[in-house]
Amino acid sequence: MEYTFYAKGHKNVTSAHRSTFEVTMDREIGIRADCIVGVASKIKLEDFPHELREAIKKETNLIRVQLETENAKDEIKGYGHPELTLDHPTDMVCRKSEFKCSRTLMIKSDKAAVDLKRELVDDLKEGKDLKVTILVE
Score class of each variant (00 low, 15 high):
Tyr6His: 08
Ala7Leu: 04
Gly9Asn: 02
Gly9Ala: 05
His10Lys: 01
His10Phe: 04
Ser15Asp: 10
Ala16Trp: 02
His17Ser: 12
Glu22Thr: 13
Val23Cys: 04
Asp26Tyr: 04
Glu28Trp: 06
Glu28His: 03
Arg32Tyr: 06
Arg32Gln: 07
Ala33Lys: 01
Cys35Phe: 00
Ser41Trp: 01
Ile43Trp: 02
Lys44Pro: 00
Lys44Ala: 10
Phe48Arg: 02
Phe48Asn: 02
Pro49Glu: 11
Glu51Asp: 15
Arg53Asn: 07
Arg53Glu: 06
Glu54Pro: 01
Ala55Arg: 14
Lys57Ala: 06
Thr60Ser: 15
Thr60Val: 14
Asn61Lys: 12
Asn61Leu: 09
Ile63Trp: 06
Arg64Gln: 13
Arg64Gly: 00
Val65Thr: 07
Gln66Leu: 09
Leu67Phe: 15
Thr69Asn: 11
Asp74Gln: 08
Glu75Ala: 09
Glu75Pro: 02
Ile76Asn: 03
Lys77Asp: 09
Lys77Met: 13
Gly78Asp: 13
Pro82Lys: 11
Pro82Tyr: 12
Thr85Phe: 01
His88Glu: 10
Pro89Arg: 02
Pro89Ile: 03
Thr90Arg: 12
Asp91Trp: 00
Met92Trp: 02
Met92Ser: 14
Met92Tyr: 06
Met92Asp: 10
Val93Thr: 07
Val93Trp: 04
Val93Pro: 03
Arg95Met: 08
Glu98Trp: 06
Phe99Thr: 08
Lys100Met: 15
Cys101Met: 08
Cys101Gly: 15
Ser102Asp: 15
Arg103Leu: 00
Thr104Gln: 13
Met106Val: 14
Ile107Met: 05
Ser109Ala: 15
Ser109Val: 10
Asp110Ala: 08
Asp110Leu: 04
Ala112Gly: 05
Ala112Val: 04
Ala112Asn: 04
Ala112Phe: 03
Ala113Phe: 11
Val114Asn: 12
Leu116Gly: 07
Arg118His: 11
Glu119Ser: 15
Leu120Pro: 04
Leu120Cys: 07
Leu120Ser: 12
Asp122Ala: 11
Leu124Phe: 08
Leu124Thr: 07
Leu124Ile: 10
Glu126Pro: 00
Glu126Trp: 00
Gly127Lys: 03
Asp129Thr: 13
